[in-house]
């Protein structure tokens, strides 16, 4: 058979392509559940980390189910559109966990409409509100979660992660909490996102020590990472841009809490 004839080449290429396609499809379909599970577990671990619970890949799902009591979807004007509670929907039909934050944030930016996720954790009878964050660092995307106490003002905890910030400098935002050492995310504990006049102030990551700044109250600022100024600015913007969408929700929630008391 003529190995350089067009017919041979054509048949050879077709057989090769079909063979490769079959192998790849089989591999992709059989591995997909594992890959999806990894992504979900990582998301759960990040959410739990913001309320100070470190979990492993094995127990993350179980801890998540026991600690996170509600998943809410809220709109920009503060309405709760979906509630997923203890494994079933009591309102709407969208789980906060399944929301694609990137898509929603860009839709909020463009149309002022979007499904904003909030996770409510219940620890020893106290409620914590966890808000997922997503933004841009120096190189590429950064993300995290910030947990508020039930006054919806004081920060209970936060965690951050990044795709490719400079190791040793900007990448320090993702440092895991260690005993006896104050890492970047620890600084957020106890900070407030509103000022005394209950105006939204967010939390800024500032260079040169918060204590030396006049423009930013001690409660609304944390110290930047040395050598990671641009990543720190990214964190500031991320917190502000994400939290600002929730201000209406927080205000309605607060006034209903007060009238409830």
């Amino acid at each position: 058979m003529n190995k350089n004839g067009n017919l041979y080449i054509f048949t050879y290429a077709s057989v090769l392509v079909v063979g490769v396609a079959v192998v790849l499809t089989v591999a992709s379909i059989s591995l997909k559940p594992f890959q999806d599970k990894n992504v979900r577990i990582e998301k759960m671990q990040n959410i739990l980390a913001s309320i100070g619970i470190q979990s492993t890949a094995k127990n993350a799902e179980q801890i998540y189910d026991s600690k996170i009591s509600e998943e809410l979807i809220v709109s920009v004007d503060g309405q709760v559109t979906s509630v997923y509670e203890n494994g079933k929907f009591t309102k709407g039909n969208l789980r906060a966990f399944d929301v694609d934050l990137k898509k929603e944030l860009s839709s909020v930016q463009k149309t002022k409409k979007g499904n904003l996720p909030i996770f409510v954790a219940d620890i020893d009878g106290k409620k914590y509100y966890i808000i997922p964050l997503l933004g841009k660092g120096l190189w590429s995307s950064i993300w995290g979660n910030i947990a508020l106490e039930d006054d919806l003002n004081t920060v209970y905890g936060a965690n951050f992660d990044h795709k490719s910030e400079t190791p040793g400098l900007g990448a320090e935002i993702a440092q895991k909490p260690k005993a006896g050492e104050k890492v970047f995310s620890d600084q957020f504990k106890g900070k407030k996102i509103f000022d005394d006049a209950s105006d939204f102030k967010s939390i800024s990551v500032v260079k040169g020590g918060v204590a030396n700044q006049k423009a930013i109250a001690l409660d609304n600022g944390v110290d930047a990472i040395s050598g990671g100024t641009l990543t720190s600015n990214g964190v500031t913007d991320m917190i502000k841009d994400c939290l600002v969408n929730y201000v209406n929700f927080i205000k309605t929630q607060k006034s209903s809490n007060e009238s409830g008391n």
Binding site: I9, L31, F34
Partner: peptide, 30 residues
């Protein structure tokens, strides 16, 4: 392998194996 398309065939084989490696890493060593 027909010599005229041998580079493409080699590329396809590498790409196939690399995709498999990538998928396996994503599944078991995230």
């Amino acid at each position: 392998i027909p010599s005229r398309i041998r580079i493409i065939v080699q590329l396809v084989v590498v790409a196939l194996l690399v995709i498999l490696v990538d998928q396996i890493l994503k599944a078991f060593s995230y």
